Simulated scan of single mutants.
Amino acid sequence: MKYFVTVQASQADYDAMEGKDSPFPGWSRDEIAAMVAFMNDLNAELTASGELLDGQGFTAPAQARFVTGSPGREPVVTDRPYADTEVLTAGYWLLECSGLDRVTQIASRITQCPVPAGSPEYPVVIRPIGEAPSA
């Protein structure tokens, strides 16, 4: 079964990592290196097990673009229609696992990624990928 596993962050989290003013603790170079090493090790293990189909981290929410519209209306494009503290998807893994128990084990491990003390805690979200209905 395939699963879409996501981690979350806000613009304030990205700002803290970049040393900008943020309500969250700033990240040191060592803390960033520890996070990157953790993610690289996890991805290597998931690749070796054959479970990792894809995984990517996203840029800061401030770089996002939102396009809204409906049939018969001109689409509206905006850069930042949300508060800077709104939590959005920060990255994802597309996994093929034996079942929900296995992907939950992986998500539980992701929650152990090192972060500075006092950083916000966000859930790791698991979404099973459904099959398209037959025509």
Rank of each mutant, 00 (worst) to 15 (best):
M1E: 06
M1P: 06
K2R: 00
F4T: 01
F4H: 01
V5T: 02
V5Q: 01
V5G: 02
T6E: 12
T6K: 06
T6I: 11
V7F: 05
V7L: 09
Q8V: 03
A9W: 04
S10N: 05
Q11D: 09
Q11E: 07
Q11L: 10
A12E: 01
D15W: 08
D15Q: 06
A16E: 00
M17P: 08
G19S: 00
G19H: 03
D21W: 08
D21M: 10
S22C: 05
S22K: 07
S22T: 11
F24K: 02
P25N: 09
W27V: 05
S28L: 04
S28Y: 11
R29I: 14
E31R: 15
E31F: 14
A33N: 04
M35E: 14
M35D: 14
V36T: 09
V36G: 07
N40Q: 10
D41R: 06
D41K: 05
D41H: 11
D41F: 08
N43F: 02
N43Q: 01
A44F: 03
L46F: 05
T47E: 13
S49H: 14
S49I: 11
G50I: 12
G50T: 14
G50Q: 14
G50M: 13
L52Y: 09
L53A: 09
D54G: 07
G55C: 01
G55A: 03
Q56V: 08
G57Q: 10
G57C: 07
G57H: 05
F58D: 07
T59N: 11
A62L: 04
A62T: 12
A62I: 11
A62S: 12
A64P: 05
A64N: 14
F66Y: 15
F66S: 15
G69W: 07
G69K: 12
S70E: 15
S70D: 14
S70Q: 15
S70W: 14
P71G: 13
G72R: 15
R73Q: 15
E74K: 15
E74M: 15
V76A: 06
V76E: 00
V77G: 02
V77Q: 09
T78G: 14
T78L: 15
D79C: 08
D79E: 11
D79F: 07
D79Q: 10
P81K: 12
P81G: 14
A83G: 06
D84C: 00
L88W: 15
L88E: 12
G91T: 05
Y92Q: 04
Y92D: 03
W93L: 02
W93K: 03
L94D: 09
L94H: 04
E96G: 04
E96S: 08
C97E: 09
S98C: 01
G99R: 00
D101F: 03
D101H: 04
V103Q: 05
I106P: 00
I106L: 11
S108P: 12
R109K: 12
T111W: 02
T111L: 04
Q112C: 03
Q112R: 00
Q112E: 04
C113T: 11
P114W: 14
P114R: 14
P114A: 13
P116R: 13
G118N: 10
S119F: 03
S119C: 09
E121L: 02
Y122W: 09
Y122P: 06
V124N: 06
V124W: 00
R127A: 02
R127Q: 01
P128S: 01
I129L: 05
A132P: 04
